[in-house]
Write a protein that binds this DNA or RNA. Structure first.
Length: 401
RNA sequence: GGAGGGGUGCCGGAGUGGUUAAUCGGAGCAGACUGUAAAUCUGCCGCCUGAAAGGGCUACGCAGGUUCGAAUCCUGCCCCCUCCA
């Protein structure tokens, strides 16, 4: 396994390490390191973008180190100021717990549970007093905080910044102190926060943590960073078919980045891929298929990957009907329109939408294109909308009578 | 305390009395094409009704008002932001 190799771990899919020499030395010293990873319980779903750093954590685990996963139940209430995140609703304790559970289920798909320690921010922030806050805040100046790009751009653009947002990096930094982190992981957009952690640790006499930054993965739209709110994400908990399809839909320009960041396909092979793409001797589609298989194999297994591929080939490349189609029981009384059937089978959200779909020629029944609402639907009919949405209609009246 | 700016459809953002269900961009959906659910091109993109043509209803922070007619004018209320102090 390549991940056993320190050199590989420090090089592959890494954006920046602060301070690289120190980290390298620490790794070779044989000391068991505490690797910090935080998670905001407002967003319990993990996608490929998160997987980049989680894979790194896993690689460190394989080298014998300890992960400390922090459930950021306090800072979640503030919201990371990166981007223009609006004030978010404050989560109830139950929600936080439920989200944490969802998160960990996905987290441990990638990371080894045995070498992970889970800590809640409330363990230390629950006891925080005003005095502690004053102590903490007096260590930093506005100028220091405004050095962060997010803040300064927002400030000069006349957009609001709340005091609590300014507090966010400090609290995150304090987490590092509380758990005595040796290394903290994050995307490049976390650089500022992680540096504050370093600073605070040295102020209180701890050895400053090393900072391990991974590249931000671009979403399936090919332009913005992968995020759930933008809808351009591939979730690690999604079914294999869905992951496969989404990988196939990324723009060709992203192929190499994905291979680099979320797979362990050896560098030499990636070199070949890159050359092939440039000289157009490799069909990008073939690489995307490989990429999809690699990702699904990590999250599920090889068989799931093979099945997802089969499904894709069948439905999208050959335009055939998939094996498994969701069935819906519909009352096929005389005079029921196709529109109603589309709504009943969730293929259309409203009858107006169903109208449009029919008018656009998107609907077919048993492979026959349908052009109006009076088309006959029978029990057992397979209705297809667009390229990929299918439903099988079962006459509910037959079942019940 | 003072001055000013703003709340529009999933998001961003036009629109200051009249074919405005509301320019445009993004997202989404569909069609064509294709080497892919890439790219590109085209269309659609509130709800209900109709086989269709069409018809109806609801919408521009909230509540009233002016008017033949309002997202656009007036009044009150709620909310957000900036600057000065």
């Amino acid at each position: 396994m390549f991940s056993q190799d320190i050199g590989y771990v420090l090089r592959r899919g890494v954006a920046e390490i602060i301070v690289e020499d120190e980290l390298s030395e620490l790794l070779r010293s044989g000391k068991k390191l505490r690797l910090k990873e935080g998670f905001d319980p407002s967003f319990p779903d993990i996608h490929l973008g998160h997987m980049v750093s989680l894979r790194k954590l896993h690689q460190f685990q394989e080298l014998g180190h300890q992960i400390v996963l922090i459930v950021a139940d306090w800072t979640a209430q503030i919201g990371d100021p990166s981007g223009m995140s609006a004030t978010r609703p404050i989560l109830s304790m139950e929600q936080v717990k439920a989200n944490a559970e969802t998160y960990m289920k996905q987290f441990f798909k990638i990371v080894d549970r045995k070498r992970t320690e889970v800590r809640w921010q409330s363990e230390w922030f629950g006891k925080f007093t005003l005095n502690d806050i004053i102590q903490l805040t007096s260590k930093f100046t506005i100028a220091q905080l405004m050095a962060r790009e997010d803040f300064s751009t927002r400030y000069s653009a006349g957009r609001p910044i709340t005091m609590t947002e300014l507090l966010y990096p400090l609290l995150q930094a304090y987490d590092s102190v509380a758990i005595q982190a040796d290394v903290e992981f994050g995307g490049t957009d976390q650089k500022f926060n992680l540096l504050v952690g370093r600073e605070l640790q040295s102020m209180v006499g701890q050895r400053p943590q090393q900072i391990f930054l991974v590249p931000i993965l671009t979403g399936t739209d090919g332009s913005q960073k992968m995020s759930k709110s933008l809808g351009n994400y591939i979730g690690v908990a999604e079914p294999p078919e869905e992951i496969y399809g989404k990988v196939m839909s990324i723009p060709d320009s992203l192929i190499m980045d994905y291979f680099e960041s979320v797979t362990d396909v050896p560098d030499e092979e990636l070199e070949e891929f890159g050359q092939g793409l440039k000289s157009e001797t490799i069909n990008p589609m073939v690489l995307k298929k490989r990429l999809a298989r690699e990702i699904i194999t990590q999250l599920y297994d090889q068989q799931a990957a093979a099945e997802a591929e089969e499904h894709f080939v069948k439905v999208f490349q050959k335009r055939e009907v998939p094996e498994e189609i969701k069935e819906y029981h519909v009352h096929l009384s005389a005079g029921i329109g196709l529109r109603d059937v589309l709504v009943e089978t969730h293929l259309a959200r409203s009858r107006s939408e169903a109208n449009r779909l029919i008018a656009q020629g998107a609907v077919s029944i048993d492979s026959e294109k349908v052009t109006n609402n009076v088309a006959p639907v029978q029990s057992g009919s397979i209705i297809k909308v667009g390229k990929r949405r299918f439903a099988k209609v079962i006459n509910a009246d037959i079942i019940t009578s």
